[in-house]
């Protein structure tokens, strides 16, 4: 019976302690959030480019993606991917006459689910950032003979980055918190570990409070990092 175990033992790293499980859970939470952020940035940038495309069908498809993914609960996307992926993969494999490959790893599914939603929001942020670069400065780069890559690297990207850092910080924080939804897929991230610990020790308050503290440590540490990055880029814009 763990009802009477002292807090230090329960949260410690001994045989009766949940310390390691909590730490590795927090690590997985970070991994899901980081993976989702990376997928979201990549796909979000592609969506932004697609929305600016002259091919109307591509622009519309990208816009529709945003409307759908921003319009449904994240939990639904997680469930859809987690329970839908094995079926979709099996159907895909059947097309090539292969046996069903089974379920993809929960970490991958989690990153993908949160990342797909993150991409929809990041695309909006990037679009706003692109619009904030004065047309005249892009023309000055063209007039100087810079090709599309040099224009992007030297003029557009630095200014877009400056405009998107604050909203990207917000999206990162949402990613971090949304990763808790992946607990439903059985991934032993922080939320899942605290649920299991709370259940098996019957000390829910202790473990949920601990999870809360760990989430807060992660969000405030990353907020501080984003602030630092913002301040570094702000000198030219008049901030300090």
């Amino acid at each position: 019976m763990s009802d009477d175990l002292p807090i230090a033992t329960l949260l410690g790293f001994g045989p009766d302690g949940w310390g390691w499980a909590l730490v590795s859970g927090a690590g997985l939470t970070l991994a899901v959030a980081l993976g989702a952020m990376a997928i979201g940035t990549l796909l979000g940038a592609l969506l932004t480019a697609a929305q600016a495309s002259r091919a109307v069908w591509l622009a519309r498809a990208a816009a529709a993606y945003g409307v759908i993914l921003r319009g449904v609960p994240e939990l639904l996307v997680v469930l859809l991917l987690y329970f839908g992926a094995p079926g979709m993969l099996a159907a895909g494999a059947a097309l090539f006459g292969l046996p069903p490959p089974g379920s993809p790893p929960a970490l991958l599914t989690g990153c993908l689910a949160i990342g797909l939603v993150s991409a929809a929001y990041q695309a909006e942020v990037f679009r706003g950032g692109m619009l904030a670069v004065p047309r005249g400065q892009i023309e000055a780069a063209m007039a100087a003979g810079m090709g599309p890559f040099a224009r992007f690297r030297r003029v557009i990207a630095p200014q877009v980055l400056h405009h998107v850092l604050p909203p990207l910080g917000n999206i990162w924080q949402f990613n971090l918190k949304d990763s808790a939804l992946v607990s439903i897929a059985g991934l032993a991230e922080l939320m899942r570990v605290s649920l299991v610990a709370a259940g098996s020790t019957r000390r829910p308050f202790l473990f949920f409070a601990t999870a809360m503290v760990l989430y807060l440590v992660m969000t405030s540490a990353s907020t501080a990092l984003f602030r630092l990055a913002e301040r570094r880029g702000q000198r030219w814009a008049g901030g300090r």
Partner: peptide, 8 residues
């Protein structure tokens, strides 16, 4: 309008 690159 000059169009200097404001971030440089």
């Amino acid at each position: 309008n000059f169009n200097l690159w404001t971030h440089m």
